[in-house]
Amino acid sequence: MRLTGVLRNVVSNTLTHRLEKEIVIKAPWGNIAALTWGDPAKPPVCLVQGKLDACSSFRPLVSLLPDDYFYVSIDLPGNGLSDHLPKGIRYTAVDLVPSIVEVKNHFKWDKFAFVGHSLGVLVGKYFILAYPGQITKAVELDPMPAYFSWEVNQISVWYKLNYERYYGEQYLKWNSGKETAPKYTFEEIQERMMRARGLSKEATAHILERSLEPAGDGLYRITYDQRMKFVTTPQLSASNLQQLYTSIRSPTFVILARNTIDGGFYDKAPFLQDPKSWPHNNYKYMIVDGSHDIHVENPECVVNEISQFLKFGLANS
């Protein structure tokens, strides 16, 4: 038995008053696992998690969002209960875009709204660029990886970090599979995640319910794909990013965490906090106090603004 069933007794089901359903979507490389909430006949909202996360991390936010939508939150390949990509290949942000394509095709959506967190934002942006007009509105929750930039004189550093290291010193480790993952007690794993991400016990429970499995003797191991620790982002300069992202026409609402800003992660992308830099007048942002995982730790501080944006877009801005 997977740990999922155990932890779901710990995570209160009263968090969401609507039915939560586990689904599996078939893809060419394997299964995409997901959670859904609400009526499939209602307008769809696709939610995509960040790196080394799980679709259940959106549960606290979805529990507060209006009943007017059908919410589908997916585990990206190599995360949660989704299958890993075939061994040997490198995970890149662009290689994760087909996951959204498969979800869209499975439900036969023509258009849908999108909510992404961290790496999920970058995946969503490349979907928008590849399939313009299909995402009606985009909510970006602390989109840090989407704004990583590399100048021309940094190509060598970018290549060595993302490829030389992968195919050299880390190849066997990152492709060895979950069987070689270290084993810990549940309390040890939870403490490590709380320290690394600054999360509460309740918040970590939402993620760990889909990221652990029993390993014998009362111990557990983490099941996410080790290759997901270093997902390759495109080699684009800050000016490239601005030109590319501001060309997008889908209404976009960005929520930035104060701790991430103070850490300097957006210093190379000043246009992110300048709506006048977006020529289509389709952009707004807000800054909230807190850390990178604000949507799972304190969704109350963003739910009203997200609800208004999903309903009205930028009409009330």
Rank of each mutant, 00 (worst) to 15 (best):
C55D: 07
R59W: 09
G78A: 02
I100R: 10
L52C: 03
F58A: 10
T92F: 01
L81F: 11
Y91G: 04
F70P: 00
G80Q: 03
P86K: 06
P60A: 05
D68Q: 15
Y71W: 11
P60M: 11
S63H: 13
D95H: 08
I100G: 07
D95C: 13
V94R: 09
A54P: 00
P77A: 13
P86Q: 04
S73T: 04
I74V: 15
K87R: 09
S63Y: 04
G80V: 06
L96W: 00
P77C: 08
S57L: 04
S57Q: 09
D75A: 10
S73A: 15
G78W: 06
P98A: 03
S73M: 14
P98D: 12
K87G: 05
G78E: 02
I89Y: 12
V94K: 11
S63V: 12
V62P: 01
A93H: 07
S73N: 01
L64P: 08
D95E: 13
P86F: 09
L96N: 06
H84F: 14
P60N: 07
A93D: 04
P60F: 10
V62R: 12
S73L: 09
L96I: 03
P77D: 04
D75G: 04
I74H: 01
P77Q: 12
P66W: 06
L65S: 04
D83P: 04
L96A: 04
V94E: 08
P86E: 13
N79G: 03
F70I: 01
H84S: 15
Y71T: 09
S63W: 10
D95A: 10
S56N: 11
L81H: 06
L65W: 02
N79Q: 12
S99W: 05
R59S: 15
V72H: 03
G88F: 05
D53N: 08
N79W: 00
V72K: 11
G78M: 07
F70E: 10
S82E: 08
K87Y: 05
V72C: 15
S99Q: 06
A93F: 02
I74N: 00
L52F: 06
I74S: 09
F70K: 09
D67S: 14
R90V: 03
H84G: 02
L81M: 13
V62M: 07
D67T: 15
K87W: 00
I74Y: 14
G80L: 03
L76H: 04
S73F: 06
S56R: 14
S63E: 12
G80F: 01
T92K: 10
P98T: 11
F58M: 00
C55L: 00
P86C: 02
L61W: 15
